[in-house]
Amino acid sequence: MNASSPRSSPTARRAARDAIPFAAAGFVLAISFGISARAAGVPGLAAIAMSAFVYAGSAQFAAVAILGQGGSVVAAVVAAALMNARYIAMGVALGPSLKGGRLRRALEGQAVVDASWALANRGDGRFDRHTLFGSSAPQYVTWLAGTIVGVVAGGALPDPEALGVDAIFPAFFLALLLGELSTAEAGAVAAGGAIVAVALGLLAPAGVGILAASAVAFVGAIGARR
């Protein structure tokens, strides 16, 4: 146990508590994913493994949607990769705040999801790694558990999307975004990314808009620091 443990453990526990609303929403949405995956013909164990190893809701839904429409596995993988491209910019920003060499930082970076990244952001270009780990842990547990419930008992449950529960996540992410818009530069970057994402979302294949918006945000963030 190192000298920072007495301080870091309470930080992680507090972050876990702060992430409970996101974890609860993720549980319900994961049930929907499990149901959708089975409806698209994805084997139950494959859907559960996807949640265990991919752990990215938007990418998983995109992949399942393509498979459900008769698309190939390759197309589904490409779409999922494009949906997750935003993590490149997020990882570059987070990297200096993680510890150890490249391998350790890569392993620690697996804890990144949108909510944990935002909660760990200190607002000065640095991130609290214990907040990152603490906030991601309950979200991972509920995402995996919800997928299992959806796969195993989905046939006996109403689809959460039919109840409008899928609107919970966008509302949470909007709240996270508003918390990050503390400067005019951040507002300009967010507006530019939103315009690109919406325009390409209407005109380009799934995932391209997210990729381009991530690039805009990355370039804008670098420019704002100079």
Rank of each mutant, 00 (worst) to 15 (best):
S5K: 08
A23D: 06
A120K: 09
A63G: 11
F127K: 03
S51H: 10
V151D: 04
V141M: 01
S136N: 14
P160A: 10
A59L: 05
G179T: 00
M90S: 01
V196M: 03
A49Y: 07
A199Q: 05
V64K: 10
K99C: 04
R105C: 04
G155C: 05
A19T: 06
L119M: 13
V152R: 02
V92I: 15
A93M: 09
A221D: 05
L45K: 14
I20A: 14
A137H: 08
A120N: 09
A56I: 07
A39C: 12
D114E: 02
G44L: 14
S116V: 06
A40E: 03
A190S: 07
G57A: 10
G68Q: 05
A47N: 06
T147A: 12
L144R: 08
A37R: 07
A62P: 14
I48C: 13
A120S: 15
L181P: 02
A56Q: 11
R129D: 04
F127V: 07
S5C: 08
S36C: 12
G164K: 07
A204H: 06
F169H: 11
F173T: 01
L177Q: 04
G91A: 06
S58H: 03
V74L: 15
E180I: 15
G57E: 01
L132M: 00
A62G: 13
L157F: 02
S8I: 01
V151W: 00
V73I: 11
Y87R: 05
D166L: 03
A212Q: 04
N84S: 10
R105E: 03
H130Y: 14
A188Q: 15
G91E: 07
P6D: 04
L174T: 13
V73N: 10
V73K: 10
V151G: 04
S8A: 14
G193T: 05
I48N: 14
P170E: 00
V64Q: 04
M83L: 08
S97W: 14
N84T: 04
R14W: 06
G26S: 09
L178R: 02
A80G: 15
R38F: 00
V151P: 00
G164W: 09
L211T: 09
R102L: 10
A81E: 00
A221V: 02
A46P: 01
Q110L: 15
L178M: 11
Q60L: 08
S51V: 07
A184W: 03
P158F: 15
G34L: 11
A49Q: 03
A206E: 07
F61W: 03
F127T: 11
V149W: 01
F169V: 15
A30T: 12
L29W: 08
V92A: 14
S136T: 05
A79R: 03
Q110K: 00
S32I: 09
A167Y: 15
M90D: 00
F218K: 01
G71I: 01
G207N: 08
G44Q: 12
D159M: 12
F33W: 04
V189S: 02
A85V: 05
G57K: 11
A167T: 11
A85N: 00
S135Q: 07
A93C: 00
P21S: 13
T11F: 06
G187Q: 12
R38M: 05
A75K: 05
V92L: 15
G155F: 05
A212P: 05
A23F: 06
N84R: 02
V216A: 06
R122Y: 00
A106G: 10
V54R: 09
L202W: 10
A171T: 10
L144H: 08
A188L: 15
Q139F: 02
N121S: 13
S72Y: 02
I148R: 02
A30G: 13
